[in-house]
Amino acid sequence: MTRRLRRSVPLAAAVFAAALVSAQAAEVSLKLADSLPAGHSITKKATQYFFDRAKTLSGGKVEFQHFPAEQLGKAKDLLTVTQTGLADIGYIVPSYVSEKMPLGAVAELPGGFNSSCEGAKAFWALAKPGGLLDTLEFKPNGVRVLYVVALSPYQAIFSEKAGFKSFEDFKGRKIRSNPGPMELALRDLGAVPIRMTPPEIFDAMTKGTIDGALLPYTSTFSYGLNAVVKSVTVGQNFGTVGITYSINASKWASLPRDVQEALTKAGDETVGHACAQFDQEEAELATRLKDTGTLMVTFTPEQEKVLEANFASVSKDWAQNLEKRGKPADKVLAAFRAAIAAQR
């Protein structure tokens, strides 16, 4: 045997042994499905961070298989995908499944908070295990929330064709929004809300099918919309999207206690880490938009009061409509506002 071969044999054995230990250490493999492109800000700042923390806190006992970009199902179907076990953890947005989780849209009400961290931490207080939304909606649907995401407050973004320059220009504009509270807010401003998924917005704005959209600046860049956006609002809160990453309850019950503890701690840490990252990025991207010639539209104090009244009316109508259906929306709204106030 040559000297080089004698040196390589122990090295190969060591590599094989390390790989074997690693494979043995990962006792639990979890499939996570979402609808986001792999490079989305949420994936980078929340999901990947959660993966890394869970692996570290579990001592390598848990690993993840990530299925992004609707590989296992459309965004609106990911609750079912998680309930049936096709995925262990799913990107579950209450407003996408409003027939099953209508109260979860409380995080999406416009005007309620000033930053991602205010919104995310308040939403987390209600959605985490033992919270009010967990009791009312997530647990009855057979899922347990691991962590939540609330992006920075949404702004109104517009294409060059839209010619948006002032508050009055909302009237008659076709604007993509999430279903629910955002639609109500736009209608009160005289705009026409349009439903479509984020990946569809670029073509729709380019072709003039819609004039604009409600999105945070982070998503504006994640979906490449900065290439077509020419004017945006500044300092508003047209709502956000309340996102959960939730695990199938039966799958959760089957996990070893130490893995459960690792996932719980990783999820709690992810909420605070991700929202701070979103808020920082939002400020940086606002500067980038301005520096590249985007018109940054601000409103007068009188117009701000109109918006404030608009948003208050939307929240009231949202709660009243659900109360008529026997849903305790007033209680949920009060709890959400209290959770925001507690942070201030």
Score class of each variant (00 low, 15 high):
Thr209Glu: 07
Gly163Met: 06
Pro129Ser: 07
Ala274Gln: 00
Thr220Ile: 08
Gly90Asn: 06
Tyr96Trp: 03
Asp268Gln: 01
Ile210Trp: 03
Ala329Phe: 12
Ala19Ile: 04
Phe64Asp: 03
Pro37Thr: 11
Ala122His: 00
Glu27Ser: 14
Gln71Asn: 10
Val332Ala: 12
Tyr223Glu: 01
Asp188Pro: 07
Ile89Ala: 08
Trp318Gln: 08
Thr56Ser: 15
Ser231Ala: 15
Glu108Gln: 10
Thr220Val: 15
Ala122Gly: 02
Lys76Phe: 07
Val314Ser: 11
Ala12Leu: 15
Phe167Thr: 00
Leu11Trp: 13
Glu302Trp: 01
Thr298Cys: 12
Pro110Ala: 02
Ile175Val: 12
Ala107Arg: 00
Ser219Phe: 14
Gln65Arg: 02
Met182Ile: 05
Val28Lys: 13
Phe238Glu: 05
Val306Gly: 01
Asp77Tyr: 11
Gly111Met: 01
Asp88His: 12
Lys327Arg: 13
Thr2Ala: 12
Thr84Asp: 10
Thr84Asn: 11
Val259Tyr: 06
Asn248Thr: 15
Pro301His: 03
Leu126His: 09
Ile247Leu: 03
Phe238Tyr: 12
Ser35Trp: 15
Gln343Lys: 14
Leu215Cys: 10
Gln343Trp: 11
Arg7Ala: 08
Leu32Val: 13
Leu103Cys: 00
Lys174Val: 06
Met196His: 00
Lys128Arg: 12
Gly90Tyr: 01
Thr82His: 13
Phe238Asp: 04
Thr82Glu: 09
Thr270Tyr: 02
Phe278Cys: 09
Ser231Ile: 08
Gly85Trp: 03
Val143Ser: 04
Ala107Asp: 09
Ala213His: 03
Lys139Pro: 00
Leu215Gln: 06
Asn248Ala: 12
Glu261Ser: 15
Asp88Thr: 06
Ser116Trp: 11
Gln303Tyr: 02
Ile247Tyr: 05
Ala309Asn: 14
Val143Gln: 08
Leu186Arg: 07
Pro37Arg: 08
Phe50Arg: 06
Gly163Thr: 14
